[in-house]
Amino acid sequence: MITSPYDKYRQSSVQTSSPSQLLLMLFDGAIRFAKTGIEGIDEHDFEKVSTFLGKAQTIVNELLTTLDRKYDVAKTLAPLYEYINYLFIQSNIKKSKAEAEEAIGYLVDLRQTFAQAAKMTAGQDLQHG
């Protein structure tokens, strides 16, 4: 049972978001969790590192498993998502920020690309609708 107003809002926003908005929310979550994992490295809080890099990995795995393989772009994205996960694993094992920061860089670039694509397709929908 959801009781907090924030949780109710969050559930409502997920249920009413378009697929492109949901995709951007996933990227935002992965980036936020990875940054929190990096904070854990700085704080020598290795439980925090493991928890939050694990959450970032879970999101990247979701992005990987939900790729629509009938599109050519999936052939490029799949190995990239796998590499991002590898970076998170290495960061967690080594307690090193460099790998997580590299992964965040890819996620930020992907998020910007998908946000731009969403704007372009939204404009086309308005023109053709």
Rank of each mutant, 00 (worst) to 15 (best):
M1V: 13
I2Q: 09
T3E: 05
S4R: 06
S4H: 06
P5T: 13
P5N: 02
P5L: 11
P5I: 09
Y6T: 13
Y6S: 14
D7S: 14
D7Y: 01
Y9C: 00
R10G: 01
R10F: 00
R10A: 12
S12V: 13
S13F: 07
S13T: 10
V14E: 04
Q15P: 05
T16N: 15
P19R: 09
S20D: 11
S20H: 06
Q21S: 14
Q21H: 09
L22G: 04
L22N: 02
L23Q: 07
L24K: 03
L24S: 09
L26R: 10
F27Y: 12
A30K: 00
R32F: 08
R32E: 12
R32V: 05
T36N: 08
G37S: 08
G37W: 01
I38N: 01
I38E: 12
E39G: 00
G40K: 03
G40D: 02
I41C: 02
I41H: 07
D42Q: 12
D45V: 08
K48G: 07
K48S: 01
K48I: 05
V49L: 14
S50R: 10
T51G: 03
F52C: 07
F52A: 01
F52W: 10
L53D: 03
L53K: 03
G54M: 08
K55N: 12
A56G: 13
A56S: 05
A56N: 06
Q57W: 02
T58V: 05
T58K: 13
I59M: 04
I59H: 06
I59L: 10
V60P: 03
V60R: 00
N61S: 12
E62Y: 06
L64Y: 05
L64K: 08
T65C: 09
Y71C: 10
A74M: 12
A74G: 04
K75Q: 08
T76P: 00
L77R: 07
L77C: 13
A78E: 12
P79V: 12
P79R: 14
P79G: 14
L80T: 08
Y81Q: 11
Y81G: 04
Y81C: 06
Y81W: 09
E82Y: 04
I84P: 00
I84T: 11
Y86H: 14
L87R: 01
L87F: 03
F88V: 01
F88A: 13
F88W: 09
S91P: 01
S91L: 13
N92T: 15
N92D: 14
I93W: 04
I93R: 11
K94C: 04
K95I: 03
S96I: 04
S96K: 11
K97E: 02
A98G: 06
A98T: 15
E99C: 08
E99D: 11
A100N: 07
A100W: 00
E101C: 05
A103K: 02
I104G: 00
L107T: 00
V108W: 15
L110Q: 05
R111I: 11
R111L: 07
R111E: 03
Q112R: 12
Q112N: 13
Q112A: 10
F114R: 00
F114K: 02
F114G: 07
A115P: 01
A115S: 03
Q116E: 02
Q116D: 07
Q116A: 06
A117M: 06
A118P: 03
A118T: 06
K119F: 06
K119C: 03
M120Q: 11
M120D: 11
A122W: 05
Q124M: 15
L126H: 04
G129C: 07
G129L: 15
